[in-house]
Design a protein around this nucleic acid. Sequence first.
DNA 1: CGCGCAATGGAACGTCATTCCAGAAGGGGG
DNA 2: CCCCCTTCTGGAATGACGTTCCATTGCGCG
Lengths: 226, 226
Amino acid sequence: MSQTRSRGRRADALSKDVVVHAAVELLDEHGERGFTFKLLTERLQTGAGAVYWHVANRDELVYLAADHVIGVALTGLSAEPGADPETRLRTLALHIYDTLDRHSWAAPHVIAAVTMPNTMLLLERIGGLLTETRLPAERHFALATTIFIYLTSVTAQDTARAATAEPGVDRDAMLGEEARRWAALDPATFPFVTRIAADLGHHDDRDQFATGLDLLLDGLRAQEGR
Amino acid sequence: MSQTRSRGRRADALSKDVVVHAAVELLDEHGERGFTFKLLTERLQTGAGAVYWHVANRDELVYLAADHVIGVALTGLSAEPGADPETRLRTLALHIYDTLDRHSWAAPHVIAAVTMPNTMLLLERIGGLLTETRLPAERHFALATTIFIYLTSVTAQDTARAATAEPGVDRDAMLGEEARRWAALDPATFPFVTRIAADLGHHDDRDQFATGLDLLLDGLRAQEGR
DNA sequence: CGCGCAATGGAACGTCATTCCAGAAGGGGG
DNA sequence: CCCCCTTCTGGAATGACGTTCCATTGCGCG
């Protein structure tokens, strides 16, 4: 089966796109930490040198992979005509949240560099929706970036936390375990945490995210009313 | 000067605390990526084995260092008596922001594990302040975690982005450069981004953070009013 | 049809976290 | 006072990783 490959140029050429696609797959499977050039060259049936011909280094590859994921998420979003801007903002945010949830390694990189082409497109979308509200134009920059930062940051952290869990361990079981630990704390020093420990058990990250987003939008509406 | 050390037990004993302190220093100086066991053993004038006697591995060490930083931040915060809970919440948040800004490597770890002793204390503080508001008790869990998540996530990303910059490069110059790149985009596809490009030039992360926080608190007040 | 150069595969290198272990204090019991 | 054993130490050894280097190849242009 596995035969030693001949050196030199190949017919089924490697390309930046092919490399990035393979990287996204492997990142999805093994996470950022588990993603290595060894895995990558094995999947692509090639050597390290070939990969480095198309990509500067590991960092750039992960960067490109993250941008690709955001790009797919943005193009795969329907226009949702007729709805008011606030609703569409909410839809957009949750859609990005879900996408990054499926590629948990990507989120931290999306924010690190606003330079990323598709990340900028995301900011553009948010800003476009804000323009349709009655909010004063001089606040648009602050508000758009705030929503952008909330969206990317919180998602990044949610997914990072989720990725911490050992693969194969039940998520609900882990939450239950954590809730029990909270409840077992000293109520004298932790009156609040012990009181809300039960809530932790039936807690959903996505709902949590939506709650914060709604709070932001409520704040926005409150400012709008003034 | 530098003399070969004899093996075996030493008078000036190493301890978990000493190791963690040195780790915090080196993390501040070199960031998470630049922090290596080589640097650590050189500073502590010892070998790797000695460090591993006190600490399980690199991950645990960074975890302990991050918790230590949060602990210092929480104990170093004055009580601010007389102020209303909302103001105190704002002060607390900005204080944590500033602390994590000074130890940019720490922020990502603070959120990853809510298990961290001092991270839980932070959640407790936030919850305690919420209890003093007129908000319904059944919403306390959702709101406290929302604020907690906003605080830690956004700070984490701000500091991560700041750490990306090459040491020695002027931050304002970099922002100006970025603003120029935004302005140079095609106004047809990026109407919003090109319009707000100028704002990016005189933009401050801390103000930005405060804006989002105020938006959250506005939303909170709006819900309170209902 | 041959030649140049874009592309390739893998060996080699330096760095890193981690493991392993021989050996040296410290201190308690005889 | 001295021996022993637990606790702690330093550094050599290991294996995985990202990256560099280069001889070699075969596509596609002339």
